[in-house]
Structure formats: C-alpha cells, structure tokens
Design a protein around this nucleic acid. Structure first.
Length: 515
DNA sequence: AGTGCAGTTGACTTT
DNA sequence: TAAAGTCAACTGCAC
C-alpha cells in the first residue's frame, strides 16, 4: 500500500491508545479512521448486558477525548460489521484494516470470517496483531509460558504523537446509551467507570495503596473489593493492556508493592491468558464440555425452580445468597466466591452449566468469554482431568466471613441473627427465631437443598461417569490438548529426577487457579 | 503422680 | 483452588 493512504483501525476489546499496535502501525502509514462498530449481534447476544454496554460507552467517551487530543477522530457506527466496513470503505477508500486478534464467541468468530472475506473482496489488507498472551494457531502448550513472558517483557508501544485525520472529516455521533439500545441497568451500584484514564488510575491506586495485602485479602469478600486490583473490566475491554498492567506491577514489586503481593497478581495475569487460550484453541467449549463424555451428565439439569432461586439469591444458604446479591449489585465479586457460586449451581442444584452461563456472564462487568467458559466448566467438573472441587457454602462462610459481616450487609433479613446461627440459620430453635424476628421459611427461606445429601448425589453421578471408557479416553485427549508440558514425566521439566508432590507438578495443575 | 478419656490439632489420604 | 475421612499426637481435666 502506498504511503499516506488512509488506514482504518477497527477497535473491539482494545479501547485505549497506549500500547496499541494496530493504532501505531496504521498511524505510521497515513491518515487514520478509528472505528468502533456497535454491532446488533453483540447487543442482542444472550451473554451481553447493559452493564457491559455502559462500561464500553464510558470507555468510548474517554477514547473520543484522547483521540481528539491527538488530532484524530473516533468514528462510531451502528450495524453489521461488513456492512459498516463497506460503507466506510466507499467514503474513505482505506487501504488497510488494522485490529487486534479477538478470542471471542461463535458469533465474533463467524463475523471475523465474514470480515476477512469482505476485506479480500474489497482489496483491503486486514492485519491482526496478538493481544495479551494468547497465541493463535497454537498446537500444544509447549513453550507457551515462555511466549507469555516474552510478550510481557516487550516495551510498551507509545501513543502516536499525532494522528492525521482523513477527509471527509469523521462526523461525531452521539454514542448510544443503554436505553437507546434497549438495555437496562436496574439495581446496579457500580463503582468502576470505563475508560483508559480510569483504568490507569485504578492500576495506580492498586499499586500505591490498595494492593499491599492482596495475597492475604483476595479470598475474603469483605476485603477483596478493595484489596483486589479491580483491573478485570479494564483488561476485558482493553482499556489497559495486559502488558501495561504487568510491567507496572513487576516494576513496583519490592518497592511500592510487597514482592509476595506482586507475585500473586502476576501469577493471575498469567492465568488470565492461560484460560483465554483454552477458548482460542478450542472454540467448541462454548457449547460442549471439555470432556465430551460429560455433555449429557446433567442432561436433566434444568430445574427451573432451582435455577430461579439461585438467580434470585434465595437458596437459603446465607453466604451463597449474600454473594449472589453482592455480585448482582456490584457486577463484581472475588474469584473464590465466583467458584463457590458455580459449584453450588452445578453440584448442589445439579444444573447444567449451559442453562446459567449467559445469565452469569450478564452479572460480570469484566466478562471475558475464554475465562468465563473454562472456569465454569472447571468448577462444574467437566474437564475430566481434575478432582471435583465441591465447595461447602457453610465452611466458606465461616472461613471467609467469620463474623457474618458480609452476610448481614447483603441479606438484611438475617441482620438480627447472632453469630451462632448466621451461617446456618435453619439450626435456630423456634424460640430464638421468634426473639430475633427471623422466622425460617417466612422471613428467610429454608435451604432449597440439603448440603450432604446433594453432594452425595453429585459424587455418585461422577463415580458412575468415570467408569465409562469414553470418559477416560476423552480425559486423556483433554490433557493432551490443554495440559502443560511443565513437570510432566519424560519431558524433563527442570526439576531433576525427584518428583515433587507440589500442585504445580501435577498435570491437573494446568486447570488450576489459586485465589 | 499416674491413668483414662474426650476433644482438638495437624498431617496425610481419598473422593 | 475443596472437603471429608483417617490416624496419631497432644491437651485439659477428672479422678
């Protein structure tokens, strides 16, 4: 393409100007149209919610300002991607289309294929660059961790000094609100605002103030809200690049942040890409269990009443209900509690993951398909290579909310219940129920399932399943495809001949996540 | 002071 | 990253 021909940067989940390779590459070649497409398919997708659009919208407002400051303009259009690109191509005759690789759902994958076809038909060169640590076209996990390290260590790409705008000038349009798109935001009390500027401020406040005790406090829903980085939505929508976050935290390790805290965060940035990689390598996990033999395990797993009780946070388990209510209001809860909520839906309520994955995605302001899908499957026991992790909601409560503070905040029905019964109010003698004004089954529901009994049932189903030869075979295949090479016998692994019993040495480690 | 017992704690194994 | 079960060591206490 000739120098000074118009270039189009197509923004997707990369709403920023710092460390943005497509932008840098395009700006070096000529006038730039920065395009964001409001796609009907996205707005209408079952895993898309007003909570997401609001965050995107705020990010676009912020981006609009920074792009203007560089002398450019942000072009926002509504419509199907190839239709929008086609119109824009007629208007600007751009020679190159630049974007980041996206690890998305079936619809984004199909749309990208349409765009590729359109680009080649229109004589436009579409260039995509790797985003974060996900590797496209990966065969197995050999050397994956090294690629991640290498990418994270590369210098940040600076913001172009200026952007030259194409003619005709990009017309400003009002960025549609949730209401304009038919999306709602009822009952939310979100405290994070979308945008690159906000994202960088959140990163800074985490390093300078909030993250000192990250490693110790991330498991408690009381403290995690402040002590976790809260970067997840900014990473999910690309307001802050993974590399920016990584380098800021790595640099602060041992100075502004305790080394142990910084290490814990970096391990999770690594896991972030690790789980996205699973969807990139196997898009079918949107619809099928990692281990296909598990696909029919909960075939009858759609008890509408149980699903509804869970979604409405009236399961009768105070800690579960508190976590669900907090999540619904804030759009965020810490990792451990997410795992517990999925475990409860999958094991205690025996619901099929496919009947709640979209609803859950709509509660997460930081929804990232690759992480979401692989985590749900893992916490539901569908990988076939992990031991079952069935959370005891009472134990989680006594461990991470010992004085019931979190429960009383989110389940006010139990405000007057003493610490003796806050985690298992159904144990309250009638007399005490009357005294506290909290009658079980009236003011607060009785447990919809009995823990021991439900867990025994779930375990029995898995025991049966594991007898099947097709299950064993599929498990081997999962390990082959997604399993780490690190520490596997016969591959070296740098630990000498002695096999350690540490978790990171086990093949299961590949699906693991610490929080 | 020594013994028996109940209950606790921690390490380790199994599911 | 889970939880439950087993076993041994230990603690506090009564006698």
């Amino acid at each position: 393409m000739s120098k000074d021909s118009v270039q189009c940067v197509w923004l997707k989940r990369d709403l920023r100007v710092l460390d943005h390779r497509p932008l840098v590459e395009a700006a070096a070649r000529g006038p730039v149209v920065l395009l964001y497409i409001v796609e009907p398919e996205m707005i209408e997708a079952p895993d898309f919610d007003g909570i997401h659009w609001q965050f995107i919208r705020q990010s676009l407002v912020d981006l609009q300002a920074s792009v203007r400051e560089l002398g450019g303009a942000l072009c926002i259009r509504r419509g199907e991607a190839t239709a929008v690109l086609d119109t824009l191509h007629i208007e600007y005759d751009f020679a190159g289309l630049w974007s980041h690789e996206e690890t998305g759902n079936a619809w984004t994958f199909a749309r990208d294929k349409r765009v590729a076809r359109w680009a080649s038909g229109a004589g436009v060169t579409w260039q995509e660059f790797a985003h974060n640590g996900v590797v496209r076209g990966l065969r197995d996990r050999d050397g994956w961790a090294r690629v991640w390290e290498t990418r994270m260590a590369e210098p940040l790409l600076v913001v172009p000094e200026s952007l030259s705008s194409p003619t005709p000038a990009v017309a400003d349009i009002e960025i549609p609100t949730c209401a304009a798109l038919g999306l709602t935001l009822e009952g939310r009390a979100l405290d994070l605002t979308g945008g690159e500027g906000e994202g960088l401020r959140v990163l800074q406040s985490f390093i300078d103030e909030r993250g000192k005790r990250y490693h110790r406090e991330m498991s408690s829903p009381n403290q995690a809200y402040k002590s976790c980085s809260r970067l997840s939505p900014y990473l999910a929508w690309g307001c802050v690049s993974m590399r920016t976050a990584y380098q800021a935290i790595a640099t602060a390790a041992g100075t502004r942040m305790p080394k142990i805290a910084a290490r814990a965060v970096i391990a999770r940035l690594h896991w972030h890409c690790h789980f996205m990689q699973k969807l990139e390598s196997e898009p079918a996990i949107e619809f099928h269990a990692f281990n296909r033999a598990c696909d029919t395990l909960r075939a009858q797993g759609h008890d509408a009443a149980k699903l509804e009780a869970w979604q409405e946070a009236r399961t009768g388990y105070p800690f579960v209900d508190a976590c669900l209510r907090a999540l619904k209001a804030r759009g965020w809860i810490n990792f451990r509690m997410r795992a517990m909520l999925v475990s409860f839906a999958s094991y205690h309520l025996w619901l099929d993951w496919r009947c709640f994955k979209d609803w859950l995605a709509c509660q997460f302001i930081d929804y990232e398909p690759g992480i979401h899908l692989s985590q749900i499957q893992m916490q539901s026991g569908l990988t076939g290579i992990n031991t079952l992790r069935i959370y005891n909601p009472i134990k989680q409560g006594t461990d991470h909310d010992p004085d019931g503070k979190f429960i009383r905040t989110w389940v006010p029905e139990l405000k007057e219940v003493s610490n003796d019964f806050i985690h298992d109010p159904w144990m309250m003698p009638d007399l005490i129920q009357i005294e506290t004004g909290c009658q079980l089954g009236v003011d607060y529901p009785l447990p919809i399932v009995e823990h021991r009994e439900a867990v025994r049932f779930a375990r029995a189903r898995f025991t049966e399943l594991r007898q099947l030869p097709e299950y064993r075979e599929a498990s081997r295949a999962v390990l082959q495809r997604h399993g780490s090479r690190k520490g596997r016998s016969g591959r070296g692994g740098g630990r000498g001949t002695k096999r350690s019993k540490q978790a990171d040495d086990s093949p299961q480690g590949e699906f693991n996540f610490t929080a």
